[in-house]
């Protein structure tokens, strides 16, 4: 059942992201977006391991995390359409959505910006002694921000219930990890803060799920943070219209062989969780969900300028 539900979610993310790329090509949505095609197993593995009361934060590349946490596709997509039904009422766009009621504490346009934010949520959990864990998603590029080091040190000192989950997808925009990391193993940095650090296969749902669940439980028991490095690959371009001049098509072909969605489909068939016909059915249902979301967005009223003008401060 776990695998089946995970597959549904991974496929939803894949189709959502593919539709976003299509909508840009057709000129139907505005701004920019960073899709996570190829990284779906991380999103779903982490989200499945979390409890409803847990928190998750993400980055500019956050659709997958948010959908895995239960976002309504139409309300997320509406941010790209600039519509009032969006999670940020059209004000945020792809990179700025938040829904605390779902344990989703936001995407963030500043690389590394959410690392202390997620940690503050963990600080709140530790002060109030709730059993909430905060899952902080970020990229290999973000791990080079100074605030990463400041924050991990503090979280370790205070034994906060926060998991630092880095998606090492090989690139920060055009900068490969070879160019950007003096030590290619990001998990090694955990040693500097005296916390556990592990590197896992981020393209394998079960491996992500098991690992995150283990460290989430430990954090819940008061054992403090962990750094989990998920090795993956961004099959899509960095953002809309990325010509991908910094890597070869051959390299991409190789990476497609490790496509987490295809890997999952193979597993489902091998283990007889689903038949080929059932997989096709899931695909059709998911296509219908995305198509409906697009129609909902197109028919929704535009973001309200008057309402935004009065939104600067809280009461």
């Amino acid at each position: 059942m776990l695998l089946k539900a995970a597959y549904n979610q991974m496929l939803l993310i894949r189709y959502f992201e593919e539709s976003i790329e299509r909508l840009f090509l057709e000129g139907r949505v505005m701004g920019t977006a960073h899709t996570c095609i190829g990284q779906e197993a991380v999103s779903v593995g982490v989200a499945t391991a979390l409890q409803p009361q847990d928190a998750m934060t993400t980055t500019h590349r956050g659709h997958g995390h948010f959908l895995a946490r239960g976002a309504e596709p139409a309300k997320a997509m509406a941010e790209l359409f600039g519509k009032s039904i969006g999670y940020s009422k059209g004000r945020g766009g792809s990179q700025m959505m938040m829904a605390p009621e779902m344990g989703f504490y936001g995407s963030n346009g500043i690389t590394g910006g959410s690392i202390p934010f997620a940690t503050g949520i963990a600080l709140d959990a530790s002060i109030r002694k709730t059993d909430r864990v905060s899952a902080c998603m970020f990229g290999d590029g973000a791990s080079n921000q100074g605030v990463f080091h400041e924050t991990l040190n503090m979280a370790a000192l205070w034994k906060l219930p926060v998991l630092y989950i880095v998606e090492n997808n090989g690139y920060a925009m055009s900068t490969s990890t070879d160019q950007g990391l003096a030590n290619p193993c990001i998990a090694d940095r955990a040693k500097a803060y005296n916390i556990p650090g592990v590197t896992i296969n981020g393209n394998d749902f079960e491996e992500v799920y098991n690992c995150v669940q283990q460290y989430a439980e430990a954090a819940r028991q008061g054992e403090g943070p962990a750094l989990i490095e998920c090795m993956t690959y961004r099959l899509s371009g960095h953002s809309r219209g990325d010509p991908r001049v910094y890597r070869t098509r051959e390299e991409e072909q190789e990476a497609w062989k490790r496509d987490p969605v295809k890997t999952m489909e193979k597993q489902l068939l091998e283990r007889k969780v689903l038949t080929a016909a059932q997989i096709e059915e899931v695909q059709q249902k998911t296509t219908a969900i995305i198509d409906k979301a697009i129609i909902t967005c197109e028919n929704a009223p535009p973001a309200s300028a008057a309402e935004f003008q009065n939104s600067l401060f809280a009461e």
């Binding site: 504490y105 202390p116 940690t119 503050g120 709140d124």
Partner: peptide, 22 residues
């Protein structure tokens, strides 16, 4: 705290959104 102004500020912001008044 340690000497980490960005983390102090960012952590406080996260805690504030989660319900504290830092």
């Amino acid at each position: 705290t340690p000497i980490s102004e960005q983390a102090i500020t960012g952590i406080a912001i996260g805690a504030a959104v989660a319900g504290q008044r830092p």
